[in-house]
């Protein structure tokens, strides 16, 4: 199959998902299947019995080299609802820097015969590296690597849009804030353009816009008011306070003046525009409280969708991984 290199590692020979590392290069049909499958799981989540036996007998290891209780909890809940056995390993990076390399950690984990790793790491490409090292036996789900990718977070945003808006090709979508450091923004751009969105706008000061961003097929704006004009979807990104220490920004208050989403600014967008944010929100830095809690905000809906997306991706990757194992056994 003729796939971009970024996708080859993620798919089986027949094009099924076997690792979920990044949206970059994945075909549209696969993204649509993830959304449809997740949609089904949203319904399961609303039922009295929220658990299904798809991953019964499988072991999922949450391998977190970087703290993130929120993300880990949603993956944990998703795995439990699929009836998998879940092991949480919080490996703080100081312990690995004390001599044990990532590779040694992986070798130890391999001995546990787990079926899936959910990986969070502060370095870009870490999930990629792990997938290359542990293939072919373990499915890897990227739960955030450096500033590279966070594909489940991006897909939950796509699910939010999918459930609340018409088809992607009619939409104007604005992503606002610290694009440079955002692993989610990169995957959001890949997902939106792959799903057919024609008008994706990245809005922020030059210090927070990545090099050559336009080549991703988006338009960049420095002026929030201009960038928000007539958009259907507004995705606000979280601003880490350490950005002020490393000279990316002068102060939170100046950032809010230029890029904070206020009711007044929200009026520039379409009247039925939806507002999203990955959380946790910095009220008064990225977004005004009235907007975050307002009618157009879907910030709380996103949490539930996050579990459904993770269930979908985990069951699809496990299925693909099992198929790949069978193909390999048959070839032997």
């Amino acid at each position: 199959m003729n796939l971009p290199p970024s996708a080859q590692l993620q798919l089986t020979e027949t094009g099924e998902l076997r690792h979920f590392l990044s949206i970059d290069g994945l075909p549209k049909t696969l993204l649509e299947r993830i959304l449809d499958t997740a949609n089904s799981f949203v319904v399961v989540g609303n039922q009295e019995v929220k658990k299904v036996p798809l991953l019964r007998g499988k072991t999922v290891v949450n391998l977190f080299f970087e703290n993130s209780t929120r993300t880990r909890s949603t993956f944990e809940l998703a795995a439990q609802r699929l009836s998998a056995d879940v092991l949480n390993l919080d490996i703080n990076t100081s312990a690995t820097s004390k001599g044990e390399s990532l590779l040694d950690t992986l070798r130890n984990l391999r001995a546990m015969h787990s079926d899936m790793f959910v990986v969070r790491h502060s370095q870009s490409g870490a999930a990629h590296f792990i997938a290359q090292q542990v293939t072919p036996n373990v499915a890897i789900i990227n739960a955030g690597d450096g500033r590279h990718a966070h594909p489940t977070q991006a897909m939950l945003d796509m699910l939010t849009i999918y459930r609340h808006k018409a088809s992607f090709d009619q939409l104007k979508v604005a992503i606002v804030g610290d694009i440079l450091h955002s692993r989610v923004a990169r995957d959001q751009v890949h997902a939106l353009t792959t799903l057919g969105c024609q008008d994706v706008r990245l809005i922020g000061p030059n210090t927070l816009l990545p090099t050559a961003a336009e080549e991703l097929g988006v338009t960049t704006y420095n002026d929030l008011d201009k960038g928000l004009e007539d958009v259907d979807v507004i995705i606000m990104l979280r601003l880490q306070t350490e950005r002020m220490d490393s000279a990316f920004l002068p102060s939170a208050s100046e950032y809010y003046q230029a890029y904070g989403l206020t009711r007044q600014r929200l009026c520039k967008a379409k009247s039925d525009a939806i507002v999203m944010h990955p959380g946790p929100i910095n009220r008064g830095i990225e977004i005004e409280s009235e907007v975050a809690d307002g009618e157009q905000s879907l910030i709380l809906n996103q949490v539930g969708y996050g579990i459904a997306i993770r269930m979908a991706v985990m069951s699809m990757a496990m299925s693909g991984q099992m198929q790949q194992r069978q193909i390999m056994e048959a070839n032997q």
Binding site: S6, T211, A212, L216
Partner: peptide, 15 residues
Amino acid sequence: HDGILATQLGLNGIP
């Protein structure tokens, strides 16, 4: 190198 690929891979670029 600081270019589109660095942006895509999420690696710090060297201009």
